[in-house]
Design a protein around this nucleic acid. Structure first.
Ligand SMILES: [Zn+2]
Ligand SMILES: [Zn+2]
Ligand SMILES: [Zn+2]
Ligand SMILES: [Zn+2]
Lengths: 140, 140
DNA sequence: CGTGCGAATGAGAACCGTTATCGTTCTCGC
DNA sequence: GCGAGAACGATAACGGTTCTCATTCGCACG
C-alpha cells in the first residue's frame, strides 16, 4: 500500500499544509486508490461518499498537494492530469497500458547514467523523469 | 540540426503521409525550430511568413505527423503539447529548465535496466519514456 | 461565550487548448 | 478538363482547469 490510512493529518502538517476537513477527505480518497486518479474521478468518488466537496476545492487541493510534494502528478493521459499518493523517496513509475495500473519503482539507480548523458551535451542534470509502459502480471 | 531542409517531401512519403503544400509548410517550420513548439506558436510563425494555414490544419497536421512517428510529442508544459522534428532512431530528451532548450540523447542503453525493473514487478515492458531536466551550457 | 479577521470553500462563470463541423477548394488519376 | 475524394479554413463546440465572488469556517483574542 502506498500510504498508511492513519497519519494523514500529520502528513499534511509535515509538508506545511494546514489540515482542514476537506483536505483530509481528498487525501483519504487518494490513499484509498491503488492507481492514479484524475481530479474529476476523485471528485465523483467523494460525492458518492456524500462529501460536499466542490470540484474547485478538489482541484485546489490537488494543486497544493503536488506543489508541496505530497502527491505525484502523471501526464500520461494526454490533456488530463492524474494524481497519486506515493512514497516520499525518489522513485519512478511502471504503467500498465491495458488496465492503467501504476506501480512505484523504488530503486532508481540511474543517477550516473543521467549525469553522464547530461554532461555529454554540456548540461547539468537537476532532475529526471522515467516511465516504463508495459503489461502488468494480470493483463499479460 | 535535427533534420535536413531538403527531403521533407520524401520524409512525408516515406511515412505514408501525402505531401501537400500545407503539410510541407508545417514541416518546414518544424525543421526551422531548434527546440520544440506548441501548435499555436507554430501557427503564428506561419502567419508571420504570410502562410494562409488555418489553426485547425496545423493541429490536424501535427496530430497526423505524430501518429505516423514523424514528430515527437512532449508534454512537459502541463496542459499544452509541444512538438519537435527529431531523428528516426529511438532516443530521449534533455530539457533546459531555464531556456527550454531541447536536445536529443542518442544512445539510450537503458533496455536492460528497463526490462529488469519491469520484471521485478511482474510487468513486461513495451516502451519507456525518459526526460532529463537540467541546465544547458548557455544557462549554467 | 461573542467578535473579528483571514483562510478556505462551493457554485458557477470564464478560460484556453484542442477537436468537430461544414461548406469550399485542391489534388490527382482518368 | 472532369469527377471523386482528400485536404483545407473559419468557426462553433467541447472538456479540463482556473478564476470570481459571496458565504462559511477556523481560530485567536477579549
Ligand atoms: Zn509516484
Ligand atoms: Zn494491467
Ligand atoms: Zn525527440
Ligand atoms: Zn538553457
Amino acid at each position: 500500500m502506498p500510504a498508511p490510512r492513519q497519519g494523514l493529518s500529520e502528513l499534511l502538517e509535515r509538508n506545511a499544509v494546514r489540515a482542514t476537513p476537506r483536505r483530509l477527505e481528498v487525501l483519504e480518497e487518494l490513499a484509498r486508490e491503488r492507481d492514479d486518479v484524475t481530479a474529476q474521478q476523485l471528485w465523483s468518488r467523494l460525492r458518492e461518499r456524500d462529501s460536499a466537496a466542490g470540484l474547485a476545492t478538489v482541484y485546489r487541493t490537488l494543486a497544493l498537494l503536488s506543489e508541496k510534494g505530497v502527491v505525484d502528478v502523471l501526464s500520461h493521459h494526454g490533456g488530463e492530469q492524474c494524481y497519486r499518493l506515493c512514497g516520499d523517496a525518489h522513485h519512478h513509475h511502471l504503467l500498465c497500458e491495458r488496465c492503467h495500473r501504476v506501480v512505484e519503482i523504488q530503486e532508481c539507480g540511474l543517477d550516473d547514467w543521467v549525469a553522464a548523458a547530461a554532461k555529454q551535451h554540456g548540461f547539468v542534470a537537476t532532475d529526471h523523469r522515467v516511465e516504463i509502459v508495459g503489461l502488468c502480471a494480470d493483463c499479460r
